[in-house]
Write a protein that binds this DNA or RNA. Structure first.
Length: 1104
RNA sequence: GGGCCAGUAGCUCAGCCGGUUAGAGCGCAGUCCUGAUAAGACUGAGGUCCCAAGUUCGAGUCUUGGCUGGCCCA
């Protein structure tokens, strides 16, 4: 016997009960073992989730997909690994630990002790990986939670060592000196990948500075910069040799050189006007001409070419600093220039900016002055130009972005501190070099963790030379990307990216296995074994620890060739190395090649696309291609971002972030999973309670209602599951039809999921649920209500049984095909409905995905006929509402035409259905020539007038002689007619329909429908009786009676209604559950109604 | 400045390979049903499919060029 179904359940509670049940029955294990020897595999390789905080609802989106696809392939019989991954190493973990400890800088960590700090990082990861595991379980994510991989594992780290050694053996690892974005707070450089995360619109104090030209009297190059602190390290100036420069003389006789076009150029005009990329409160920028005019006006004395200025010497703004006088630059020394006794001051000349890598001019007109200050130690382009022009570099900042020695009074001051900027400006003003300061809005890189501005520092970092990127691009081409444009996006990144910076001057992460020697050589270790072999010091302290700082730092090795003793570089690795290696580290690549071959390449990897093209997809593809020489995955499925209900980004600080735990318990995870699955993955998803409520009402509750309807009646009627679960073969056409629809839906879901289009799969299920609920169930309710139980096989009502059998099979099938999406209620439904079946599995999740034959022609005809019945009913109701005849009022006739051929064998079914739906006595199809409406055709003069001009008159005359009906027929058949040698199409006419007498006509693309609006007395009487029943039912409800309460009705009325009641007494009694209807003459009563101009007073009481 | 994606009803979004009069949900107005009942159904109003040109018998759909927004890269 089925368990009775609560028609209004608490879904989150139901989900939690199921979690307990699954746990108790070990269902997940049984699920994982389902296909263990099936011979077919599906390899999903998980992109690790950062185990640093509890999950947000956005994580649940991706995990819903991951679970969905794995469940689907489980149902298709594929063996899988079900391995989840946690991302453990990297700055983001350090940041949280620092926060917890109240640390402000990198130095605090060193003072605290690296070992203690690293251990806290590990603890944090262990803590939150467990939290995320539990949350994932709550989501219904069925993984092998005992077997999750952790990127901090020895295996993962040593696997990366192997990769780096391989890279080094092909000469791809190098130490580069470069100017890189740097966070003073974090004390580390930022990779190309990370810097993109932290771009922010800010208003900086930008300055116009006078650079005094040597050997000229009172002449200056005017220079503009947004980073005044870099002026301390100025080395050269750049112009564009092809631009025109104006020699401007001011009122005070000072002469300024600026690019001619720039003088009147309105900087950031568009941004200011549209207030896009503009910072509130920043005033409009002035033109250079305005600045000159404010100083009393200017005259342009001469126009010269940029090329004429090349070679001019100038005095730098900070030539008094010791650093500028150090030969070879400071603190990095260019030995060649040192030997030539070249210092910064000697470099102070104007150079040509030339072109960048893309072939664009480095110096352009527009913003600024057309003369650019360069500080090769403070900017990446500056550095490249410095190298090209053989210039020294001054790199003024230390790890914390403070000025270093030889920068005189600035020593120890922080470059991003606004006070420092003020001091510099003050100093420039005192030197009379400051021409103008302003606030300038622009997008500038910031530290993604602290929000602090980044600076650019000249430092040593380690890189992988990516000149072999074409190998990766080949892999990219061979992958099926969903969405398809992902391929192009990945190519774009691969084309534009620089070499991969893999080092980070931090503590918690992959220990780069690079040891350096006094002769400036380095050696890359590829495994723990190799390390042990080459170690000459520190092995004892290291042994037993993970390959992390600080333990690993203790080891010194002897170079196998030179015999020199080296120490490890203190850097840790880029965290995307950790995630990129998992195609090997998690698949026993180093120990069991057979296993690895079984599971590599992946069938599927999946992550959210913003970011991943340059992060995980990139590192996975790079490492996968390099090591395996294969394309490392067959499919990449990616999706957009979760936003709040109004489309805004969710932020903790803005209070619109939703926590997963709250969402799960308040909304329920089936609702969440359906919401996620039905979303077009390319589009940002809006998430919130009202959207979730809509999904619950639209999808989850209808399913539940169908299920509870079926089950509760099945209990009453003692319906039991069939001996074998196979598709029924009913004779009832509606049963037949819903099975056709269901099978089609099932096959569509399968196809869509194979194509990685889960949204389409979900939407096709929604469509089916709508048909099932709003047509099949609604139209068939009475078959379930008929009396007669099934318990003792005698006198079974076969039609009633067919309805049960059909709906049962539909529900079981539906629970299967929806189970990958909403694993909770589907299992609830399945388990309850199968609890006595001898063929049952312990869970719907142990079932296979249904397989059905394609629908045949007959099925299709049945589908067409049923759709026709629905549509004609709808048009019939529409006609009723146009002629203001309520559905309660029966009408005599409905006639329809169909453009689509309807199989005659289904005609009777259509008639029956329409009769019932529209409350009409007779329904008939009529042929093409039968007139359902009066039509009037006129010329559309507003269209034809301009086309025909004076021919119109004749045409109008001609038309009057033609048979309207014939004309319309011709137009419909051929789309055009020829009158007076003029070709006219249907658009050239206005066709109006008029109702024939006593009818209401309506049409759509496929059908014409006409209802008879004339009512005879017998119809009116029947209408009155139904009106009466309706009023009494409302009264019952208002009186608070139970649905099953029997009543006694007493009434007083006019003759008319009295007669109606007498005429329809048995029907009325049955409908309102009256045991007795008593007429009692009186002039007043509690409840008065007027029906058809006749009055009635009614009182009801419960009969005992 | 370059690339990608999008622009369809008041809102959120479907619309396949080009094919009659462009759809859904929500919201709004109204009606119905009362044995799925703190549900449910139906009907209606509401659209220059961003603009322009082109290809075509036919364009929301294809092409080109603009405009607007988002993302990515400089």
């Amino acid at each position: 016997m089925f368990k009775e179904v609560n028609s209004n359940p608490d879904f989150p509670k139901l989900e939690n009960n199921l979690l307990e049940k699954w746990d108790k029955n070990n269902t997940v294990k049984e699920y994982r073992d389902k296909n263990i020897d099936s011979g077919k595999t599906f390899s999903f390789i998980d992109g690790p989730i950062t185990a640093n905080n509890p999950m947000g609802v956005h994580h649940a989106w991706g995990r819903t997909y991951k679970d969905l696809f794995q469940r689907f392939y489980t149902m298709l019989g594929h063996e899988q690994r079900y391995q989840n991954g946690f991302d453990c190493q990297g700055l983001w973990v350090e940041v949280e630990v620092e926060k917890a400890l109240g640390f402000k800088s990198k130095k605090d960590i060193q003072d605290f002790g690296v070992e203690k700090f690293v251990n806290l990082c590990k603890e944090r990861v262990n803590k939150y990986s467990a939290v995320q595991r539990d949350q994932s379980i709550r989501l219904g994510y069925w993984m092998d939670w005992e077997d999750s991989y952790f990127t901090m594992s020895d295996e993962n780290n040593y696997s990366i060592w192997g990769f780096l050694k391989q890279m080094n053996e092909s000469g791809k690892i190098y130490k580069g000196t470069d100017v890189v974005p740097w966070s003073g707070r974090s004390g580390t450089s930022y990779s190309q990948m990370e810097i993109i995360e932290g771009r922010k619109l800010v208003a900086h104090k930008s300055v116009f500075i006078k650079f005094k030209l040597k050997n000229k009297n009172n002449e200056y190059a005017l220079v503009w910069t947004t980073t005044p602190w870099t002026l301390t390290s100025n080395v050269s100036l750049l112009v564009n040799k092809n631009l025109n420069y104006a020699k401007c003389k001011l009122k005070n006789d000072e002469i300024y050189y600026v690019a001619e076009k720039n003088i009147k150029y309105q900087r950031l005009e568009k941004e200011f006007k549209e207030k896009r990329e503009w910072v509130e409160g920043v005033p409009k920028l002035k033109t250079i001409a305005q600045l000159f005019n404010e100083r009393g006006g200017y005259t342009v004395e001469k126009i010269i070419k940029g090329s004429d200025m090349i070679g001019w010497e100038y005095e730098g703004p900070y030539d008094e600093f010791k650093a500028t006088k150090i030969d070879g630059g400071f603190p990095f020394t260019n030995e060649k220039l040192k030997d030539e006794k070249i210092n910064a001051i000697k470099c102070h000349k104007i150079y040509d900016g030339g072109k960048d890598q893309e072939g664009n001019d480095v110096v352009t007109s527009g913003e600024g002055t057309g003369i650019v200050h360069t500080a090769p130690g403070c900017g990446d382009i500056d550095y490249k130009i410095g190298q090209k022009n053989n210039l020294v570099a001054l790199a003024p900042l230390d790890e914390e972005a403070n000025f270093i020695e030889n920068f005189d009074w600035l020593k120890g001051k922080n470059a991003t501190d606004s006070k420092t900027i003020e001091l510099i400006l003050e100093d420039l003003k005192n030197k009379d070099l400051l021409f103008y300061t302003e606030l300038y809005p622009h997008i500038y890189p910031h530290c993604w963790r602290s929000g602090d501005e980044l600076v650019f520092r000249l430092v040593d970092e380690w890189y992988i030379n990516m000149d072999w990127r074409n190998d990766i691009k080949k892999s990219v081409d061979e992958i099926n990307w969903v969405p398809a444009w992902g391929k192009q996006r990945e190519h774009e990144w691969l084309n534009n990216m620089g070499d991969w910076m893999i080092s980070k001057k931090r503590f918690w992460g992959l220990a780069l296995p690079i040891w350096q020697f006094e002769d400036d050589s380095f050696y890359v270790i590829g495994s723990k074994e190799e390390l042990k072999k080459l170690a000459v010091e520190g092995w004892k302290e290291f042994e037993g620890n993970t390959p992390h700082r600080p333990w690993i730092d203790k080891i010194k090795i002897k170079h196998p060739k030179t015999g020199l003793i080296g120490t490890r570089v203190l850097d840790v690795g880029n965290p995307w190395l950790d995630a990129g290696i998992v195609g090997f580290s998690t698949l026993q690549y180093r120990t069991n090649k057979e296993y690895w071959n079984k599971w590599f390449p992946a069938d599927l990897i999946s992550e959210s696309f913003p970011g991943q093209f340059r992060n995980w997809f990139y590192s996975y593809l790079t490492m996968g291609t390099a090591i395996s020489k294969k394309t490392p995955t067959k499919n990449i499925f990616s999706y957009a971002l979760v936003r709040d209900e109004s489309g805004a980004e969710m932020h903790k600080s803005q209070g619109n972030a939703i926590w997963f735990d709250d969402a799960a318990e308040e909304i329920g995870v089936d609702v969440i999973r359906w919401l996620y699955t039905r979303q077009n993955p390319e589009i940002n998803l809006r998430f919130g309670p009202s959207i979730a409520n809509e999904i619950r009402r639209q999808v989850i509750i209808p399913i539940w209602n169908i299920y509870s309807f079926f089950t509760n009646y099945a209990i009453l009627d003692k319906f039991t599951p069939p001996q074998n679960l196979k598709s029924p073969n009913p004779t009832n056409l509606m049963d037949k039809w819903i099975l056709v629809e269901m099978k089609e839906t099932s096959e569509m879901v399968k196809e869509y999921l194979k194509l990685y289009q889960p949204d389409k799969a979900a939407l096709s299920v929604e469509n089916f649920i709508n048909l099932l609920s709003n047509w099949y169930i609604r139209r068939n309710r009475r078959r379930f209500w008929k009396s007669g139980k099934f318990e003792n096989n005698t006198k079974i009502d076969l039609d009633k049984y067919s309805a049960y059998e059909t709906l049962y099979f539909v529900l079981i099938t539906l629970s299967k095909i929806m189970s990958p999406i909403i694993p909770f209620i589907t299992d609830e439904i399945y388990c309850n409905l199968t609890n006595e079946a001898n063929w049952k599995k312990n869970s719907v999740h142990l079932e296979d995905f249904p397989a059905f034959n394609k629908k045949n022609k007959d099925d299709e005809q049945l589908q067409i006929a049923t759709r026709a019945a629905m549509r004609i009913s709808s048009l019939g109701r529409s006609a009723r509402s146009k002629s203001q005849i309520k559905v309660r009022q029966p009408i005599n006739n409905l006639l329809f035409k169909s453009k689509q051929q309807i199989d005659p064998k289904y005609l009777e079914m259509i008639k029956e259905q329409v009769k019932d739906e529209v409350n009409v006595k007779n329904v008939n199809i009529v042929n093409e020539n039968y007139k359902l409406s009066e039509t009037n055709i006129t010329l559309n003069k507003s269209v034809l007038g301009p086309k025909l001009g004076n021919k119109m008159g004749d045409l109008i005359k001609e038309l009057n002689n033609l048979d309207n009906d014939l004309l319309i027929k011709n137009l419909r058949e051929k789309d055009y007619v020829n009158i007076n040698n003029i070709e006219l199409s249907i658009e050239d006419f206005n066709i109006e329909h008029y109702n024939l007498e006593n009818t209401e006509f309506i049409e759509d693309n496929n059908y014409e429908v006409s209802i008879e609006t004339k009512l005879n007395p017998s119809l009116i009487d029947e209408g009155s009786s139904r009106e009466l029943i309706h009023n009494i039912q409302n009264l019952r409800k208002d009186s608070g009676f139970n649905i099953s309460d029997k009543i006694i009705m007493t009434y007083s009325s006019d003759e008319y209604l009295k007669n109606i009641i007498n005429k329809f007494e048995s029907h009325i009694s049955q409908e309102i559950l009256a045991t007795n209807i008593i007429f009692e003459k009186s002039e007043t009563g509690d409840n008065a109604f007027q029906i058809n101009n006749s009055n009635i007073f009614i009182s009801l009481k419960i009969s005992n």
